[in-house]
């Protein structure tokens, strides 16, 4: 059973560094998501693991075995591509069994595995069709079936849902996750969609500019973002980030006299607050001015201003406040995230 370990992996294209000393581990039978904005090196990292690119330095270990120099088929993995990469001239059945035929798996065995995979993904009625006669979701299933039928224990996925519409994406998210659990596959999954990462991952590897920003469970990344980037990338709506200044009694929000951290320095620090952690306080609390209200049904998003900084408040139900209204805001001490404005790193309490 494969565990994947990436050690100081790097890929340089000429002078540009696409992947910069990336290290992380995917535990056996778990689903790890490589998450980041476009150009962060997540797809290149995946292609390095697949063997479609050669590493400039570093090591890739599958089950403790160094596969860095091995050709793709020797690595024992399957991959689902963003564009699905189905062979347009072959029908669904031949697409699924392509790899088995190439590897000279006996016909009876091929048929058995094909039937199993087709049943698993509900493709029984489509086996004789060509890819062009399938919908996007069906093509996606064929690509998944092709990955499953190889019975590789490690499956790589390169933004597999990005070509589907929102509803289908949600269904496929669940389906892929169930499939991965049921078959006990180890899966490395690339996406730029933080919702996908949050809902599917056992572990998230957050990348930025080719470097690992933070590795952890979705709850860890959401609850204790290690950097300003992690704080702003995860969560919809994202965490509010407020610049701080030194005040007479402690740190104040820039452009105001609102003391948010009594007795602590503020200059060069950033305060992070999740919208759902902030409450509307009756009477007291930190003074803020309402700039706008978005009513979403179950809750309302209030854009508020303290000094020169903006923050978002998520209040349940309909909140009827006119822009310009002065209100009081309050949050528990445990909901405060502090970051160093220069390095972007998280500052632990104290």
């Amino acid at each position: 059973m494969p565990e994947v370990r990436i050690e100081r992996l790097a890929k340089r294209f000429g002078a540009t560094v696409a992947v910069d000393e990336v290290s992380f581990t995917v535990e056996d039978g778990s689903l790890a998501v490589l998450l980041g904005p476009s150009g962060c090196g997540k797809s290149t990292t995946l292609r390095l693991v697949a063997g479609l690119e050669t590493a400039s330095s570093g090591r890739i270990l599958v089950d403790g075995k160094d596969v860095t120099a091995l050709p793709p088929p020797a690595r024992g993995l399957a991959m689902v591509f963003q564009s699905y990469a189905l062979f347009p001239h072959l029908d669904v059945a031949r697409n699924i069994t392509f790899g088995l035929e190439v590897r000279r798996v006996p016909k009876a065995e091929r048929q058995r595995r094909l039937a199993a995979a087709a049943a698993l993904l509900g493709l029984e009625g489509l086996l004789a069709r060509k890819p062009a006669q399938l919908s996007g979701g069906q093509q996606q299933r064929v690509a998944l079936a092709r990955a499953i039928v190889a019975e590789a224990r490690l499956c790589l996925m390169d933004e597999p849902l990005s070509n589907l519409d929102a509803k289908l994406r949600q269904e496929m998210r669940k389906e892929i996750r169930e499939l991965q659990r049921r078959l006990g596959m180890t899966m490395l999954y690339v996406t730029h969609d933080q919702v996908e990462a949050m809902t599917m991952a056992d572990r998230i590897v957050l990348l930025k500019d080719g470097r690992v920003e933070q590795v952890g469970t979705p709850a860890e990344l959401y609850g204790r973002p290690a950097t300003l980037f992690a704080a702003s990338f995860l969560g919809t709506p994202p965490m509010s980030l407020l610049a701080l200044e030194d005040g007479p009694e402690g740190a104040v929000v820039a452009g105001s006299s609102t003391c948010v951290l009594p007795g602590r320095p503020g200059r060069g620090r950033v305060l992070g607050l999740r919208p759902e952690a902030v409450r509307l306080a009756d009477g007291d609390g930190h003074r803020a001015v309402v700039e706008g209200v978005e009513f979403l049904g179950a809750d309302s998003h209030l854009t508020c201003r303290i000094g020169s900084e903006r923050l978002l408040v998520r209040a349940s139900g309909l909140v009827d406040l006119a822009p310009g209204t002065e209100i009081g805001l309050d949050w528990p001490a445990g909901a405060v995230h502090l970051f160093d404005a220069g390095s972007g790193r998280r500052i632990e309490a104290g």
Partner: peptide, 12 residues
Amino acid sequence: PVLEEAARLEGA
């Protein structure tokens, strides 16, 4: 080109 990559991964 992704077709050749897919084929390569499948051992072709």
